[in-house]
């Protein structure tokens, strides 16, 4: 327990993450400018997902934490997606 006490993340890692997040933001603005019909939402959501993974892994330190935390985050995300899916079973087929 003590050996994994603290992983100090260098400042420049955070800086690179910020740059990637900003680039992704502009890309998502760009992709929604192009008329892709129904797919533009999908595109925007994909970019948002990539961004949130970056935030979770580096800013929120999941990459450096114990694996069970990553497992929990994944589990909660899956539960939430399953709830949306099941709710749509009603609305999509109604």
């Amino acid at each position: 327990m003590e050996k994994e006490k603290h992983h100090i993340v260098p400042y420049k890692t955070y800086f690179y993450i910020l740059i990637s997040l900003l680039v992704l933001t502009f890309m998502s603005i760009g992709i929604t400018k192009i008329n892709l019909g129904g797919y533009s939402v999908l595109g925007a959501l994909i970019f948002s997902t990539i961004k949130s993974v970056l935030v979770l892994y580096w800013f929120m330190h999941l990459k450096f934490d114990q694996p069970f935390l990553r497992f929990m985050v994944g589990f909660v995300t899956l539960v939430f997606l399953a709830v949306i899916f099941i709710t749509f079973l009603d609305y999509y087929y109604r």
């Binding site: 399953a82 709830v83 099941i86 079973l89 009603d90 609305y91 999509y92 087929y93 109604r94």
Partner: peptide, 22 residues
């Protein structure tokens, strides 16, 4: 148990697919 909530709503006008699933 987290995914069975719809069985309280069988008569509320849900879609058939949702009803079978629940």
């Amino acid at each position: 148990g987290y995914f069975v909530w719809g069985h309280h709503m069988f008569t509320s006008g849900m879609s058939g697919t949702a009803q079978y699933t629940f």
